[in-house]
Design a protein around this nucleic acid. Sequence first.
DNA 1: ATCCATTTCCGAAAAATATGCAGCACATGT
DNA 2: ACATGTGCTGCATATTTTTCGGAAATGGAT
Lengths: 150, 150
Amino acid sequence: MDAIDTKIIDLLSADAKRSLADIGASVGLSPSSVNERVRRLTASGVIRRFTVDLDPVQTGMQTLVFVWIALRDDADEDAFRAYAAAHPLILECHHVTGAWSYLIKLRVGDTTRIEPFLADLKSRRFVGRSETVLALSSPVPGALVRKDDA
Amino acid sequence: MDAIDTKIIDLLSADAKRSLADIGASVGLSPSSVNERVRRLTASGVIRRFTVDLDPVQTGMQTLVFVWIALRDDADEDAFRAYAAAHPLILECHHVTGAWSYLIKLRVGDTTRIEPFLADLKSRRFVGRSETVLALSSPVPGALVRKDDA
DNA sequence: ATCCATTTCCGAAAAATATGCAGCACATGT
DNA sequence: ACATGTGCTGCATATTTTTCGGAAATGGAT
């Protein structure tokens, strides 16, 4: 992970379809050298995968929601984590410091989808209390990338 | 955006380096047809870009932080949004419902980097109050993808 | 400083992949 | 029935990736 690797990652982040020759020209290396570096970055796990950044609107996932979760005292925490990992709407789930125990980030098509989501969480007896926060607009939206569960 | 497009996007999400022939075999189309569909998906903006998913640890951004922000009454909100968009550590910034006005998601190398970050926010007179939440672990970590600011 | 071992790089050939296009099939609306 | 538009295929071509031998650079150790 030297300066050239960093630059290669920057370039791939912006456009992973750029050719090895293009990248080579930018970093001052031959295509084969760039190839070898990308191979190593992938093998070592710095690059986890090549993927696509999608438009939330056109994929029908317009509404961004954060849900703070306080687990029930008797909740099966492992089961909750597995549930979160498998849930198609849940983009992220973090165990966090502070008054709440978990923070879930999810995307839904519209706000009507939130209530069933919360109802399901409660019916599975994971949640004690929860607090839902909607994103109204996003000065820095972040990328939309599918979960890596292949 | 028919069922085949959806499947192509699923396949590309999991591995954007898969060849057109491979994808074609999975969806029952010739390579050229897949090529044309990918071209259209990109042109129409469904696919925003091809990119890479990185390992936070190996990129030195181990610590995930959420910061709730209440802007000062006299804060220049446009300036704040521009600042957030340009800030290298800020992965996301959302205007949200609830008691706080903004939610910022950022990654830092270690917790010592948080204080300077907050200090900078305050010195620019954006922030009234703020609350910082650290992610301790992430059952669903989400992808790490660089911001699209090329 | 010199030597050796290791790594990294390059260039050229070969393999794989993407691209562009003509022609065909199918559906839609007139 | 006809014309129009759209999407698909298969082929030819262009581009890109991959491989590999040998050269250059790097990094210790003496």
